[in-house]
């Protein structure tokens, strides 16, 4: 079994944290893993992505081939669209519906959402609003991870929860608790 996941967003939105959690869970589960990240210039408010590959078999390429990603997990709707060429025919998109507009020519929001919904398996939620409504302003990315949890399949939601506890342990119990709550919110929001 293998899962090829593209994580997308804008520099600073926390996609590398999502990658770290999934990566930690995969390592503990003994899966093969490759996770290509973007460091450097793009992190200054540019588009960022991470190719995350999980498998029970050996993985060769650090990069995902076009047409073969099982999942796009995105912190931003236009950034989710940037990688649809990489999606396989049964692939899903799990995305925040909240646009991050730091460019003057950002497309019309409705057009972006309509294009996302025209794809066969899209789940989009206003994660920033959910985070604020639940007093978890810093955990929007973990809500998104919760939304994606059932689609990751090669790892169970419980394995991801355990990983959240490990990854955030260094920041203290409160932070762990908040992120577990965020994860559960995302998990419950998707049927």
């Amino acid at each position: 079994m293998k899962k090829d996941i593209i994580l997308a967003g804008v520099g600073g939105q926390g996609i590398l944290t999502i990658a770290t959690i999934i990566g930690d869970a995969a390592a503990v589960a003994g899966l093969s893993l490759k996770q290509a990240e973007v460091h450097g210039m793009s992190q200054r408010g540019g588009d960022v992505q991470s190719n995350l590959r999980l498998s029970t078999e050996v993985i060769y390429s650090d990069l995902i081939k076009q047409g073969s990603a099982d999942l796009i997990i995105s912190m931003e709707p236009m950034e989710a669209l940037r990688y649809v060429r990489y999606l396989n025919e049964n692939g899903s998109i799990i995305t925040s519906s909240h646009p991050f507009k730091n460019i003057p020519n950002y497309p019309n929001e409705e057009d972006i959402i309509a294009e996302l919904q025209s794809l066969p398996h899209t789940v989009s939620l206003p994660i920033d609003d959910i985070a604020k409504a639940n007093s978890l302003p810093k955990s929007a990315n973990i809500i998104l991870l919760g939304m994606a949890a059932k689609f990751i399949e090669i790892l169970s939601p419980e394995q991801l929860r355990e990983s959240i506890a490990r990854v955030f342990a260094i920041k203290g119990e409160e932070v762990v608790k908040a992120n577990l709550a965020a994860f559960d919110l995302g998990l419950a929001a998707v049927k």
Binding site: Q43, G45, G46, M78, E79, L81, R82, I103, N105, D111
Partner: peptide, 9 residues
């Protein structure tokens, strides 16, 4: 996709 613009740093 159609509605994607470059997002430079």
């Amino acid at each position: 996709a159609q509605y994607v613009m470059p997002r430079p740093p």
